[in-house]
């Protein structure tokens, strides 16, 4: 196989996997910067994926699915907030509860609605236009109308139209996260809520409100990530399809030292490893087939452990992360 062609196809599938990780990682950045540990990213991705595929199936319009997914994930974000902010519960336990709920609820409700073992109907089917329309937020034809020259470059056209706009949105989300966190007063205060909540309290702003804002934003981002997973990357929901992506995204956040752009690089790295694994599953010759495919399957996870072991420099978490904010004596 041509080397250039291999590179392009690897880049293409890296781009396919990365947005899921990026949306979840940006959600993680917002949460953790405000002092909330969010193991529940995984569960929220799964819920987002299920809700968007289901709503898109009924409404027949992909964007509706995505909005519904954002709503559902925000609700679960608030549940996390209720447990961790209001009732000062353990962040990890609350996140785990959300992950269990996500697995149980999607399968139970999916079975009740569609009786297909938890799967949702394929959106690409002839009776549904949702799949086309979601993809077609900027469909092929529009691209061709705007830039007829694209027809000579089918590869670029494919990249742009198949997973087009949500991929772009993922990178926009990174810039947006950076801008909100680093360039606005809201972001400054949000970061302080994660570092020195007393300071924010003294300044007269509500720590509680800022933390709820953070879980809300995180929920919305997870919703988009989930929608990408089930209605843009693949045309239906299957149980457990989030496949530890939420945890990997959280690892990318730590890898990126809680900064949006560095976290994005982590996501691209993990996305690339998934792409390599995917590529090898289809490969039939070459030196790489000598290595068992399970090794490549495990590679992103091994890498996370290596990264977390601190071999990429010291990482410092926000100071107040995982700690409830309790005002002085009431």
């Amino acid at each position: 196989m041509d080397f250039i062609e291999l590179l392009i196809s690897l880049a293409q599938s890296t781009l396919r996997f990365t947005p899921i990780l990026i949306f979840a990682a940006m959600a993680g950045v917002f949460s953790e910067r405000a002092g909330i540990v969010d193991i529940g990213l995984e569960g929220k991705l799964l819920i987002g994926a299920f809700v968007s595929a289901t709503v898109a199936h009924y409404v027949g319009f992909g964007l509706a699915g995505m909005l519904a997914a954002m709503g559902a994930c925000i609700v679960f974000g608030w549940l996390h907030g209720l447990a961790t902010i209001t009732f000062r519960g353990d962040h990890v336990i609350s996140g785990l509860a959300i992950n269990f709920l996500a697995v149980g609820l999607t399968k139970t409700v999916g079975h009740a609605l569609f009786a297909k073992g938890g799967d949702t109907p394929n959106l690409g089917g002839p009776d549904s236009t949702g799949w086309e329309r979601l993809q077609g937020l900027i469909p092929k034809q529009v691209w061709l109308d705007v830039a007829p020259g694209l027809s000579e470059n089918p590869l670029l056209l494919n990249i742009l139209s198949i997973h087009g706009w949500l991929i772009i949105l993922a990178f926009v989300a990174v810039i947006g996260t950076w801008w909100v966190l680093m360039q606005t007063r809201f972001g400054l205060r949000l970061r302080f809520v994660g570092e020195e909540p007393q300071a924010i309290d003294t300044a007269g702003a509500s720590v509680i409100a800022y933390r709820y804002a953070a879980v809300t934003i995180a929920g919305a981002l997870c919703g988009i990530g989930g929608a990408y997973l089930s209605t843009s990357n693949i045309a239906s929901f299957t149980p457990g399809m989030s496949a530890d992506m939420g945890y990997l995204a959280l690892a990318a956040v730590i890898f990126g030292k809680w900064r949006p752009f560095q976290a994005m690089l982590g996501c691209l790295l993990f996305g690339f490893l998934f792409a390599v694994k995917d590529r090898l599953d289809g490969a039939s010759e070459g030196i790489l087939t000598q290595i068992p495919s399970q090794f490549f399957e495990a590679l992103p996870y091994i890498l996370v452990v290596v990264v977390l072991a601190g071999f990429v420099g010291t990482a410092r978490a926000p100071k107040a992360v995982g700690r409830p904010y309790v005002k002085e004596r009431e």
Partner: peptide, 21 residues
């Protein structure tokens, strides 16, 4: 007609109410 994964949801609820809440 209930999927058996309802037990996982129930388990999540128990973790939620006994642990987080």
């Amino acid at each position: 007609d209930i999927d058996k994964e309802i037990v996982v949801a129930l388990q999540g609820l128990v973790v939620l109410f006994t642990g987080a809440l």
